[in-house]
Design a binder for these strands. Structure first.
Length: 174
DNA sequence: CCCTGATTCGC
DNA sequence: GCGAATCAGG
């Protein structure tokens, strides 16, 4: 990949927004984080205030202080729709999911709700939360990206929103 | 070990 | 100019 004007502009914009070099590299595609950092230096763009610090982490910590709104945590397991191609037959598994009793997933008021790091698909690792956010058909589609809990594709918070592990599913009375 | 940016230097 | 390798750090 070469540094076209378009890619350079995107680099400048994302760098100014505070994204890390690796995140920018993933957004641009075809370049490593080293390439991004090298380019930043060659462009004489202002470096980070504190070397080694994580801007994304800092922003997350700052925004986490925002009190969670109760509206976001209403039980919704039984009403959550499952995305699938139009006209596709409902799978047995999905039918069973609709039978799960409602689970109170509202966190206590003192629970810290992780804020999305807004990672792109290519930025996900084995230890980042893979909870999708937004419309996959739109530009701003991203994933939570918070640190995932052990043996889970999601962070602690989103794991509570996701379906329960098969072995732990509680059936409704009906 | 995960990650961060900074620097060096062969290409 | 480019970026992998490396360094120094959280």
């Amino acid at each position: 990949m070469n540094w076209t004007d378009e890619r350079v502009e995107k680099l400048k914009r994302l760098w100014a927004e505070g994204l890390s070099a690796s995140q920018i590299a993933a957004q641009l595609g075809g370049v490593s984080r080293n390439a991004v950092i090298g380019k930043v230096h060659r462009l004489s763009l202002p470096g980070r205030a504190k070397a080694g610090g994580s801007v994304a982490t800092t922003r997350t910590a700052k925004r986490t202080a925002t009190p969670p709104r109760a509206q976001n945590y209403a039980p919704r397991v039984t009403t959550r729709t499952v995305a699938r191609p139009a006209g596709a037959n409902m799978l047995k598994e999905e039918i069973e999911i609709e039978g799960i009793e409602e689970i109170d997933i509202a966190p206590a008021s003192n629970v810290v709700v992780p804020i999305s790091r807004r990672l792109a698909l290519t930025e996900l690792t084995e230890r980042t939360c893979k909870w999708p956010i937004g419309d996959p058909m739109k530009d701003d589609f991203h994933f939570c990206g918070c640190e995932s809990s052990d043996n889970s594709p999601y962070c602690n918070y989103h794991a509570k929103l996701a379906y329960q592990p098969i072995g732990d599913r509680r059936r409704s009375a009906r």
